[in-house]
Design a protein around this nucleic acid. Sequence first.
DNA 1: TCAAGCGGATTGTCTGACATTCTTTCAATC
DNA 2: GATTGAAAGAATGTCAGACAATCCGCTTGA
Lengths: 223, 223
Amino acid sequence: MPPDLNLRVLPRTVQQETVDKLRLAIFSGIFEPGSRLVESQLCVQLGISRPSLREALRSLAAEKLIEIIPNRGPSVTQLTWDEVNSIYEARELLEVEAVGRCSQLITPAALEKLELSLGAFEEAASSNDGLARITTAAEFYAIILANCGNPILEEIHRGLVARISLFRSRSMSREGRAKSSLAEMREIYEAIAAGDEKAARKASKKHVLNAKAAIEQALNTTN
Amino acid sequence: MPPDLNLRVLPRTVQQETVDKLRLAIFSGIFEPGSRLVESQLCVQLGISRPSLREALRSLAAEKLIEIIPNRGPSVTQLTWDEVNSIYEARELLEVEAVGRCSQLITPAALEKLELSLGAFEEAASSNDGLARITTAAEFYAIILANCGNPILEEIHRGLVARISLFRSRSMSREGRAKSSLAEMREIYEAIAAGDEKAARKASKKHVLNAKAAIEQALNTTN
DNA sequence: TCAAGCGGATTGTCTGACATTCTTTCAATC
DNA sequence: GATTGAAAGAATGTCAGACAATCCGCTTGA
């Protein structure tokens, strides 16, 4: 008998599947920010019962991806510019710290994965797939955060990036930003690879600030 | 007719009430960390139905106050020392930043409230009510975070403090720590009142580090 | 002593139901 | 014609009950 190794896969429940499906649907822009999520419709579309759906919705509400107003029901969170700004400020705080720590802690194996993910983003940046850009970029950050030595920072950062994604779907799709984003990310990677903490922090800060500026600009030109 | 002013109180639902009750019960130590929460029992105790309870449990799980394992059900989160350490590191990052910003932004009215809350903590520190100490201390931080100009920092910090509270109930009850905690908080208050950002950040950092050290010591002596 | 198996307890999920609340439409009044 | 009011329809909040799948502890047998 093969050893167990505690690798037993946790059974996936309907509610977990539902949370994942809905989250993905929100990120993909299938549900517009502000649009209402009608329980009965979702039940039919997902083929599940209302209690299961409602549990999934509570989870998403706790992640701040949707908002549930009593007697009005759930709707996709609509961020104000002020909130976006606050999220970016918080993200800067966490990400700079994580990048700095990562530059001192990362293992060769993880560094290699980071390089690979950078390549994946490069490919996505040249393509026209907006979702792929977001996914590969998120992967890049995820690797860094997973190697900063602090799982809580990682967890919080994941939540923030998710909430920003509510917004980014459209703005990130402009090519110009993807190109400069790539350059900044490469700079971060180089600093981490060199173990230069100060440079890593600096590059990270620049990256977040530029990302915020890009979003701001995209908002002003679109609206 | 008086103008509406958007002051309409949101109706409180059973699930929200339940979340609050359970959260408080967990903080009060009614449920030990690690202990299982049996749905049928809670339904009877709270006088609610199982679907409502399960929705509430999903919310608490998202807050990381409980943990739900498929086919085993919910149990109160049990933090490892490593997690506690990570939470304190994250808290330091956020709290120092918030205190620094607060020192530049706070209004006279808020400053007065801060002073009052400091007085409340002083009173609690002299008493033997461990829960009161945690509550009044949390109020002190809450006021600062509410005046740092960034609602996201506030939100994240609230979550972190809540999770630490899972632990603190017993350790914070030693008088010595409450006294020195009071001195440190007063130092923070003075720096904020003086608008001295640098001193505020420094005092805040010291406070968080001392708090962590106190927890660590309490753990080592208890276990 | 240890392994297999059995049974109770617990969770995951569904169906159906009903009161309450919101939204929208339509009609009546100014 | 515009505004107010009411009523119909839709959606949510909440409950009760049910059943299969799973887990846990205990007994039994080797």
